[in-house]
């Protein structure tokens, strides 16, 4: 097995173990409807995790992911629903802002953590202006898309597989993807090879924003309405998802398939704990414990990898 495959083994095992645990405790979950209910909120989280992964691939970190996805959700539930053309324009502008952030961060050599921290206030502010109180409604086509019932397996599974494949093709197979990961690996090498590092970083940010936009839209399709704080948890969830999936903070070492699996694992962990009937006091703590457990497993496997 190649090291990359081995890295995927732990997240896959964690996911399978959690699924088995859920099915064992609640056999009715092992049905079409059960799986759909368990996993459909994983779709927006998986998209946000891919977005975070793209930022992490260039050694940056986006602390505004949750605020941005919330902002997109608010735009989707209002402008995109009422005046689709204007809605699309706003979302395109938001993606352009992300590309601009990439350029500024690069040119002025700024810490991405702080710039995105500042942007998180901006996105939340815009979201509050658009929707001061929870409301809005999902565009009809989006609602239909997110509640579609394909044969054989629920939408959430098809969507997760599709997200993983598309992200894998873009990040691991395309020229742009290779450049983005190379930028995380060694910036000077990329510059010497004649590629514009500014353009590459801007492209990574724009691509991340694109996936984050999809995350916000998917969330509205499921939730049918939006709220300025609807996705604030996504910042930490997306970072944890990337790490669970075998990604690293530096060095451009990321795995899109792993990231999607990481997002699914985090979503399932929540359901697993509620099936366990753990007192609500300890639910958050148990989620922390699961995170630690999976990472401990990964250490074990890294040791095995190193020994061979």
């Amino acid at each position: 097995m190649t090291p990359d495959r081995l890295r995927l083994l732990v997240p896959v095992m964690a996911l399978v173990a959690l699924l088995a645990g859920v099915f064992w405790m609640q056999p009715r979950a092992a049905s079409y409807t059960g799986l759909n209910l368990l996993l459909n909120l994983a779709v927006p989280i998986a998209l946000a995790t891919i977005a975070q992964m793209l930022i992490m691939a260039v050694n940056d970190l986006d602390l505004s992911m949750g605020a941005f996805v919330s902002f997109v959700a608010c735009v989707t539930a209002t402008f995109l629903n009422d005046t689709p053309a204007l809605g699309l324009l706003i979302l395109a502008a938001a993606i352009a802002v992300y590309a601009g952030l990439g350029v500024i961060i690069h040119l002025r050599n700024l810490p991405s953590i702080v710039v995105t921290l500042g942007m998180s206030f901006v996105w939340t502010g815009l979201a509050v202006l658009i929707l001061p109180a929870p409301g809005g409604s999902s565009p009809e086509w989006l609602r239909t898309l997110m509640t579609v019932k394909p044969p054989l397996a629920p939408m959430a599974i098809f969507a997760s597989v599709l997200i993983a494949i598309v992200a894998h093709l873009i990040v691991m197979r395309s020229t742009l993807g290779v450049r983005i990961r190379a930028l995380g690996g060694n910036e000077r090498t990329v510059a010497r090879s004649g590629t514009s590092i500014i353009a590459t970083r801007a492209a990574a940010y724009a691509l991340a924003a694109f996936f984050a936009v999809l995350a916000g839209m998917a969330l509205v399709g499921l939730a049918t309405s939006a709220d300025a704080n609807i996705a604030l948890r996504y910042t930490l969830l997306s970072i944890a998802g990337v790490i669970l999936g075998g990604g690293e903070f530096i060095g451009g070492r990321v795995s899109p398939i792993g990231a999607v699996i990481g997002a699914l694992t985090l979503t399932l962990a929540g359901s697993f704990l509620s099936f366990l009937r753990i007192s609500p006091d300890w639910q958050i703590g148990a989620q922390g414990a699961i995170l630690i457990l999976v990472l401990a497993l990964r250490l074990l496997f890294n040791r095995l990898e190193a020994r061979r």
Partner: peptide
């Protein structure tokens, strides 16, 4: 809303 936006822009 404006307060949050200005806070963010001023930090940046």
């Amino acid at each position: 809303g404006y307060r949050l936006i200005l806070t963010g822009l001023i930090i940046i």
